[in-house]
Amino acid sequence: MDEVGARAVPASFDDWVEARGPALLRLAYVLTGNAADAEDVVQDALSRALPRWDRISRVEDVDAYVRRMVVNAHTSWWRKFRRRESPAAEVRPEGVVAGPGEGLGADERHLLWAACQALPVDQRTAVVLRYYEQLEYGEIAALTGVREGTVRSRVSRGIAVLRDAMGDERGERDG
């Protein structure tokens, strides 16, 4: 995963996009689940950032700012097209066996990926930001504009759905 917020900020738009664009695309890909939509979301966010780059480049955490634009573009995009989206209704984990010492086989990865993509957008966004971007709940709350309690609830419900989809009975909790 990418620590989008941890690196130095290049001064120009082009330099910054060259350095941080791949991480943004990966985040968008995890959020949207496919390459075309990921590119669409990132280009949309960057095209909105471009005319304001003079100001954005001076904010304290440029990466976080643009990441927020990407997440907003994703949720906005999702709202716009949600009627056309038909996520997998069900994930069937039969036959998945974790390899010894590996713990996460390719099949399980695929199933988790598919189950994650089938989550409602708010839950998926929260889960991705928590476990892919590894943001704290407070950071996710600030980024998505909802209360921290709401973020915790979304993550918790999202994980519960994923556990259910994967037939995972353990109740380990993330603090």
Binding site: M1, D2, F13, D14, V17, E18, G21, P22, L24, L25, R26, L27, A28, Y29, V30, A35, A38, E39, V42, Q43, L46, S47, A49, L50, G103, L104, E108, R109, L112, W113, C116, V127, V128, R130, Y131, Y132, Q134, I159, L162, R163, M166, D168, R170, E172, R173, D174
Partner: peptide, 29 residues
């Protein structure tokens, strides 16, 4: 972070490797 959550994170990270290449993003914007 629990084991399951860790697996979720790794699954998402592995999936992210299939993200498209970031060529020409600035020009596209």
């Amino acid at each position: 972070m629990g084991d399951f959550e860790d697996r979720v994170g790794r699954a998402l990270g592995a999936g992210a490797e299939d993200a498209p290449a970031a060529h020409g993003l600035a020009d596209g914007a």
